[in-house]
Simulated scan of single mutants.
Amino acid sequence: MTDNASLQTPHPDDLDALPDAARRVALLLRERGHAGHVVMLAETGKTSAEAAAGLDCTVAQIAKSILFRRKHDDAPVLVVASGANRVDEQKVAAQVGEIGRADAKFVREKTGYAIGGVCPIGHATPPVTLIDADLLALDSLWAAAGHPHAVFNLSPQQLVELTGAPVADVALRESA
């Protein structure tokens, strides 16, 4: 973990110091045997670049959670992608069916989190989930922990284990 002064790590036993949604994530991580702790960024982590700056890591190490709406049944589709990548919606649709954009109300209703704080786990409605294959090339990742200022550290393998999701090529590649 970084020694960046912009991080505030509440004592693991003092979950009351966390916002409600971040506390829920911390408890869920604990229940699932994840040893990491939820940390609070001094500045918002709503974008991958903001989070990376606050964590003193690369943008690629930010495991951003992007929610889509599957068109045929309105199911939430979660793509956990590298912060350095744009998601190729056609690749995602090839895996899960036709998708569309999800508005803030849909995101909050289906995940229980606000945009900018969507965690890869603990959703109100379990989503169809895909993990960006590019994340597996990294040693360490940071993911949102239920609040725009809250994050937690994990390995790509832990992300796969926590979500139970398949790994897929979801990144938009520039054509030559």
Rank of each mutant, 00 (worst) to 15 (best):
L130W: 10
A150G: 14
F152W: 14
Q157M: 04
G122S: 10
A133C: 01
G146Q: 08
E161P: 00
L154F: 02
I121R: 10
Q158M: 10
F152Y: 15
T129H: 07
W142G: 00
T129K: 06
L136K: 04
W142Q: 02
G122D: 09
A150P: 07
T163E: 03
A124D: 13
L159I: 10
A145H: 08
F152G: 01
P127K: 06
G122F: 14
P148L: 06
T125C: 06
A124T: 15
A144G: 06
P148N: 06
P126M: 08
P156V: 01
G164N: 09
H123T: 09
I121F: 05
Q157V: 05
G164K: 12
D139M: 03
W142E: 01
H149Q: 13
H123L: 14
P126N: 10
D139I: 03
A133I: 02
L130F: 13
A145Q: 09
T125L: 10
N153L: 05
L138M: 09
P126C: 09
G146F: 10
H123M: 13
A144N: 14
D139H: 11
A145Y: 08
Q158C: 05
L136W: 00
D132A: 12
T129V: 13
A137C: 01
G146K: 07
G122A: 13
P156S: 04
W142I: 00
V160W: 04
L135A: 07
L154A: 02
A137W: 00
A144V: 08
A144S: 15
L154N: 03
G122K: 13
H147K: 05
A144Y: 08
P127A: 11
H147A: 07
P127L: 09
G146E: 06
T129R: 06
G164F: 13
L135F: 12
A145M: 09
I131D: 00
L141A: 03
P127F: 07
H149F: 03
P156A: 03
V151S: 02
T163V: 05
Q158I: 07
A137Y: 00
V151M: 11
L130R: 11
L159H: 10
P148C: 08
E161L: 09
D132S: 12
T163D: 05
T125V: 15
A124E: 15
G122Y: 11
